[in-house]
Design a protein around this nucleic acid. Structure first.
Lengths: 118, 118
DNA sequence: CGAACATTTGAACATCTGTTCATATGTTAT
DNA sequence: ATAACATATGAACAGATGTTCAAATGTTCG
């Protein structure tokens, strides 16, 4: 009586459902990638950055000014956002201009909004 | 020369863009709520739970079995998911059956998938 | 009521995550 | 080349987050 007490032994498990659903699940990696993507939207600072970029492309300094945060903090987050291909950048002289990579940010944010307002 | 070195003084800030975008931003609370919603999708365990529930409603014990995790860990996460109205539950005798509250989970997950596969 | 089962909950712990601070890199103009 | 500016980066620190463990709650059935 100490094997695996936490998992209900067998009583309440509905084997049919469990077996069926186990097969239908996507592989570990796909789920990992999905969670990683949504993590980007799960932080206030990054959410704000994306909202800002929905309006206009911008240099790091502008974003920092708009959000009232340090340039360093923004730069760190931009790096993270870039790594998940949500935003890209190009250099323009001394500045680096950041902008959304595609329309996915807009659609994902909109889906989220729909859930909130109801 | 020590005031706020991190925020670019005034040189690089494009006042016109900054002013315009500042006004367009949603209020702090809306952004906070949105980030909170996406946080739910940003954890592997919760993501798996939602995937499972996309296939079928289920009791806590079944989910724990499918994911190979302790019943306690699942229960904690179910509580969090419930607090953001993504899932609901009903009691059926000794069991508690969990299920998705509406179709938002499906649409949000699908939007995420679209970004990943391209 | 008491025993067995299913789920919930709280505290503790370890890990992950975001910001800060100091410094480095890269670009332009003198 | 040097100075000034814009951005990036690394280490350190603090706070948030997820799992575990132990114990509590709630439900059914004899």
């Amino acid at each position: 009586m100490a094997d695996d007490m936490q998992l209900c032994e067998t009583q309440c498990v509905h084997e049919d459902i469990v077996e069926k659903v186990k097969k239908l699940l996507p592989d570990e990696e796909a789920i990992y990638d999905l969670a990683d993507l949504f993590k980007m939207f799960g932080d206030t600072t990054r959410m704000k950055i994306m909202y800002v970029l929905l309006e206009s492309e911008m240099c790091v300094c502008d974003i920092a000014e708009i959000l009232g945060m340090t340039q360093s903090a923004i730069s760190h987050q931009l790096r993270i956002l870039k790594s998940s291909k949500l935003i890209t950048s190009r250099r323009e002289g001394k500045s680096v201009i950041y902008f959304l990579a595609d329309d996915h940010v807009r659609s994902i944010v909109n889906q989220g909004m729909e859930h909130i307002f109801e």
